[in-house]
Design a binder for these strands. Structure first.
Lengths: 206, 206
DNA sequence: CTATGTGAATGGATTCACAGCC
DNA sequence: GGCTGTGAATCCATTCACATAG
């Protein structure tokens, strides 16, 4: 059931989830692929194709059951269970992400935040106890953390990533503009803020 | 020369730029598509194809001139001239982005930051004077701002986006999880932090 | 008659492979 | 010989179109 799902499909699944969540609050019972597609400005066939990876979830003639589909997607994406994460690098961006509420709604729980500065560890940042990065092995093991959000300065990115991998982290959301070199085992996603802005400005007005 | 450049190509161009910048500091004079590709863990043919959109930039037998190529890319991407931007929504994320240094290196200049809270405007945030969002038309006109970074709470996203468009903003980097509905004229890029984290966790260990 | 599910067709981006130039 | 530039081939995602089910 979960072999070879395209990344784009997974991303759209989450967008569907958000709309279904909203539609359910509005009291909607059923929705067609066409209505859902229109809300997202995509094609209805795209919605059906995406959902078809996970079985026959709709009813011909009437569409999809809003509640059942929302719960099915929540289950596919693992929104229905908690996933522990940590944030590494408590600068401006790391602190902002620690306070970001959007993660919580998807089942993520920030368990620990790390920095390398004596000024910061020991203290609370945005309500989280800040730990010494060198304590990471112990803390991620105690708390079953597999995912790290990396927001250290660029110069420290590669060395910190190695520490994370050694400590047992399996996936890194990398906010630094550095291409991390790690073993294939560790999954990396890059969020390159400056790149996004530059791409936008390149295509502006085109 | 700039018709139909794929978005992916533009993004890689920036990655090439960063490496070329670094290589130049190292004193490198020439580089082959293969060496550049290896640094980024992509195929050499990809590098050549990307660059070929912009003319014949290399020399057969010896590769690309590092300085010339870096400057060519800087020119293509507009890194060689300043682009004014504003940030709208001075919560945690907006404030962090105001302090983010990565934008500056690509020629972006944060000119103004906006909020809707009386507590904030009039005061300085991360060194920037914070203005009332309702002043935006005046300020973006005075300062030739075409690009806005949108970091307001989700509930305020759509209404704020409309204000931005009315004020003359041509491109929005949208950090809210809301699908903005604006005219086709306004270019929108979405950075969906929770979506990135969810996608990463879905594919973790696969 | 309505709307899904899905093979087939299309479209876009990546990779191959090689002719052409240094 | 080494490396670019680029059509052709391949791969992957999107869209079409229709047989099928409610």
């Amino acid at each position: 059931m979960r072999k070879g799902i395209p990344e784009k499909t997974v991303q759209r699944l989450l967008l569907y989830y958000r709309y279904l969540f909203f539609l359910l609050q509005q009291g909607a019972k059923n929705i067609s692929s066409k209505s859902l597609a229109d809300l997202l400005e995509i094609k209805d066939s795209q919605v059906r194709k995406d959902l078809s990876y996970f079985g026959q979830l709709g009813k011909r003639g009437s569409g999809y059951d809003v509640l059942a589909l929302r719960d099915k997607i929540a289950n596919i994406l693992g929104i229905d269970k908690e996933t522990n994460v940590c944030i590494v690098g408590m600068g401006n961006l790391g602190s902002a992400l620690a306070a970001y509420k959007g993660f919580l709604a998807l089942g993520f729980r920030i368990i620990a935040v790390f920095d390398n500065s004596k000024q910061k560890f020991g203290h609370k940042i945005k309500g989280y106890q800040c730990y010494d990065i060198n304590q990471i092995s112990k803390i991620i093991e105690e708390n079953d953390i597999k995912i790290a959000i990396l927001t250290v300065p660029a110069e420290a990115a590669q060395e910190t990533a190695i520490k994370l991998e050694k400590a047992g982290i399996k996936a890194i959301l990398n906010f630094t503009p550095v291409k991390l070199s790690l073993s294939k085992r560790t999954k990396i996603s890059n969020v390159d803020l400056a790149l996004e802005l530059k791409t936008l400005s390149f295509f502006m007005g085109k």
